[in-house]
Nucleic acid binder design. Structure first.
Length: 508
RNA sequence: CGGGGCGUAGCGCAGCCCGGUUAGCGCACCUGGUUUGGGACCAGGGGGUCGGAGGUUCGAAUCCUCUCGCCCCGACCA
């Protein structure tokens, strides 16, 4: 049976509409970061808040996060992890126990010094009560390694207690100089896994397992292709022996670090004196990992798929996958059909919504749902019902077609998969087209300026060279190429012998 | 913290330079009507201590001083 009766495109829009739309959302070509801000605000993902650097995550943004969280949580549990929850506050002294760790985070910590307010004796309002000063200040966690390892000390005695595989869903605070919605906010939501192992080998395997898991999540669920690799010493997490990263490429050619998994060696075990007895009753320090992804992923999602009409959400993460719009507005007859389709879709686990508003006109709603990134829109009007069809519009290609109501649920289920796959292929094509090779600094600079994206080059392995390149080009080493594609030769910056291939990019 | 810019209705802005009726416009909102297959139209209506404090003046959104906040660009970073 052929479902397609008519295919048309609504890419062509008249001049007046162009002007109307331009008022609503800045085109990417004009100003990419303004476009990003417009998407966040106008699609209703997040709002500014009264607090500097902090955002209100609105239902659409939070719905995407909930879907990400639900899937990641399944994946963590499938790999043997369990959830727990540790305090928001960390005693100041904990932070300084691991030298590199405190070095990395000290400059961006919110500090609690008092625990009570009082009426202002000199006027209206309240002031901090000076007598309520804390003996030891508390830090609002920028990450939880320290409080968790302080706890693990009591939990781990024997090799039988290992491995300890714990994740927590939490909020953290990092007092950044400059913030951007989702990409870098003062407070953000994330998950942080913290595991303890009996051997170095096991801990390394764990960190690689999660690295792999993150890449799978990014590609299969977010439809966001990523490059996997290790960070350089300079870019490593404060306190880690090795940091594995997934790096995505945004539409403007800048890279985004989308998730990191750290092998911590025995650094935290030693700092917090976490030891276990092995099966020979010998005392050893445990080996550790930590790993996290945050609401930053939503920023990555936006800059991977969305367009000048608004947000585009991959079906697997879309809070609403299908919206049904009665045309021109709800009637008893249309609602009856809509509800019957809804029922069938829900039975297949598809998230569907009927627009029951009777005020706005269809054109307005179409534009609105495109702005909000709903993957599939069904239009049902009298004209369709006469032919027993509905109009299907897909968000990714903006194609419209008429499809028989009979068997529509299967058609939609397949179409959701197709959209998911199409978004991934499109993003992958863009990413692949933006991986270049530079054999000289001139080439590197030229590629970064004209094309953007990842640029492979040989590196001599020194931080000095890495920083010199950053100074010259604003690009950093996003990760070390696992396969060392370029083999051996000389570093493009220093001219010294080089045995490692790295990927440079300007990044968020 | 450096360099730019901006605070006037929920949002976007004009007015300020050159002080002078009742502070205005678009969107949004409310009411009524006509409409309704790609962002409807007409009519009526509500909403403002002009970021805050002080000053100059008969009179301040407008001039002066101080202050608070925000945005963009850098350094920092997931």
């Amino acid at each position: 049976m052929c479902h397609y009766i008519r295919i048309s495109s609504y890419r062509a829009i008249n001049k007046k509409q162009h002007i109307v739309m331009a008022k609503q959302i800045t085109p990417r070509s004009e100003n990419y970061s303004q476009w990003y801000n417009d998407i966040v605000r106008k699609a209703g993902l997040a709002d500014k808040s009264a607090v500097r650097g902090c955002m209100v995550i609105k239902p659409l943004g939070y719905g995407i996060w909930e879907n990400m969280k639900a899937q990641l949580d399944i994946m963590f549990k499938e790999t043997g992890h369990v959830n727990a929850y540790f305090p928001l506050f960390i005693p100041k002294s904990f932070l300084s126990k691991e030298a590199e760790h405190v070095e990395g985070f000290a400059k961006e910590c919110a500090v609690i010094t008092h625990h009570r307010l009082m009426n202002n004796p000199d006027g209206p309002g309240v002031v901090v009560d000076p007598t309520a000063k804390l003996e030891e200040e508390l830090i609002v966690r920028p990450t939880s390694e320290t409080i968790i390892w302080n706890t693990y000390k009591d939990w781990i005695q024997s090799y039988r207690d290992l491995p300890l595989l714990i994740n927590q869903w939490a909020n953290v605070v990092r007092w950044e100089m400059r913030t951007r919605p989702f990409l870098r906010t003062t407070e953000f939501l994330w998950q942080e896994g913290h595991t303890a192992h009996a051997t170095s080998q096991e801990a390394i395997e764990e960190s690689k397992l999660i690295h792999e898991l993150y890449a799978r999540f990014a590609e299969d669920y977010m439809a966001m292709p990523v490059i996997k690799g290790a960070k350089t010493a300079n870019e490593r997490f404060a306190g880690a022996v090795e940091t594995y990263t997934i790096e995505a490429l945004m539409q403007d050619g800048k890279a985004l670090q989308a998730g990191t998994s750290h092998y911590l060696g025995q650094n935290f075990a030693k700092a917090f004196d976490v030891t276990y007895s092995d099966n020979n009753n010998k005392i050893e320090h445990v080996w550790a990992t930590s790993w996290g992804v945050s609401t930053r992923l939503i920023g990555g999602l936006i800059m991977t798929h969305s367009d000048d009409e608004g947000l585009v959400i991959p079906p697997k993460l879309a809070p609403t996958q299908v919206v049904i719009v009665p045309i021109p507005k709800p009637s008893e007859e249309i609602i009856k059909v809509a509800e019957s389709i809804t029922e069938k879709l829900k039975n297949l686990g598809i998230r569907v919504k009927i627009d029951r508003d009777d005020q706005k006109r269809p054109g307005f709603k179409f534009a609105q749902y495109e702005m909000e990134g709903v993957p599939i829109r069904l239009g049902i009007g009298k004209r369709d019902l006469e032919k027993n069809v509905v109009e299907i519009a897909r968000r990714d290609t903006k194609e419209k077609s008429s499809v028989d109501i009979e068997g529509i649920e299967k058609y939609i289920k397949d179409l959701l998969d197709e959209i998911q796959n199409n978004l991934f292929s499109k993003a992958k094509k863009h990413r692949d087209e933006h991986i270049s090779v530079a054999e000289s600094m001139e080439q590197l600079t030229q590629i970064l300026d004209e094309k953007g994206g990842f640029v492979k080059a040989l590196w001599d392995g020194t931080t000095e060279t890495e920083l010199a390149v950053k100074d010259k080009t604003k690009a950093t080493i996003r990760c070390i190429d696992d396969e060392n594609t370029l083999g051996t030769g000389v570093d493009i910056m220093s001219g010294k012998p080089a045995t490692q291939t790295v990927l440079y990019a300007r990044s968020y």
